[in-house]
Design a protein around this nucleic acid. Structure first.
Length: 255
DNA sequence: ATGGCGCGCGCAGCGCGA
């Protein structure tokens, strides 16, 4: 099973890139974030024609998540239990016995923003949710835009990022808290090149200069991690015209 | 690494992302 995640920064703009990538990369499951569209205008037909079933939870302008899957999805959940939140940031579905959880974790904006405690509360609620889900589903994958660079090796210039959102100690502690549930960072199960990132700012030629962050992740329960044969970042879509600022991350799990 | 880009909204220029 090939699982992937991609923050597309508007599915309306990026639909051609998504369709191309489904064709070339042929994932079994693709989790999308920042679809930025209401459910009424979700391009379900085009994706179904490409061979994928769709689940989605969106809103106007901001946020929005979707799961595209070759196989049927059951037990779909579109909100975090126990969190008062009108923002569409979570979608979970069971696919071939795998519990797939797609997340767009809040950015936090800055350490002194009111969005920062919202981010930490959201992470706490996610952790509680996953603890319960993992008890029910030993085969669980958490994919998405975490808006957390877990270690300095995930940051192009760690010194420049000290004290910034995405790298702060409480955020990294929340990420470690997810690992403490028994989840494994699929990317770090394998030897990887240095300076491997999943996001680059649109400004300052950041992609060309590889000034990026690794903030899009695939965490796997131990059962899935044991069967994971590869995890990689596909930089190709970031080189296209009008790219998303994020690029896909994918992992393959043998049966 | 903070103005600098790209998106949505809506028709000017701002909020937001990371």
């Amino acid at each position: 099973m090939k699982l992937a995640t991609w923050n597309v920064n508007s599915l309306k703009v990026r639909l051609p890139h998504v369709l191309d990538w489904l064709q070339s990369a042929a994932p079994d499951v693709l989790c999308l974030q920042e679809t930025k569209m209401e459910d009424a205008v979700f391009p379900a037909a085009a994706l179904q024609e490409a061979g994928y079933q769709v689940a989605f939870s969106g809103q106007k302008t901001y946020n929005g998540v979707a799961i595209l899957s070759r196989q049927p999805m059951t037990d779909v959940i579109t909100a975090l239990p126990g969190l008062q939140d009108e923002q569409k940031r979570l979608l979970a579905a069971t696919i071939d016995g795998v519990r797939v959880v797609c997340v767009y974790i809040p950015n936090g904006q800055s350490l002194d923003s009111e969005k920062y405690p919202y981010k930490l509360s959201w992470l706490a609620a996610l952790t509680d949710f996953l603890r319960a889900e993992m008890a029910q589903y030993p085969r669980l994958a958490l994919l998405g835009d975490y808006n957390i660079a877990p270690a300095d090796s995930d940051v192009h210039d760690p010194a420049a990022w000290v004290g910034q959102v995405l790298v702060s100690e409480p955020e990294r502690a929340a990420f470690t808290g997810l690992l403490a549930l028994g989840l494994k960072d699929a990317f770090r199960l394998f030897e990887q090149e240095d300076k491997a990132f999943s996001w680059w700012d649109y400004r300052m030629n950041a992609f060309r200069r590889n000034m990026g962050l690794r903030i899009d992740h695939i965490l796997l329960s131990e059962t899935l991690a044991a069967g994971c044969t590869v995890c990689a970042i596909d930089k190709a879509p970031r080189k296209l015209e009008r790219p998303s600022d994020h690029t896909p991350v994918w992992a393959e799990i043998k049966d």
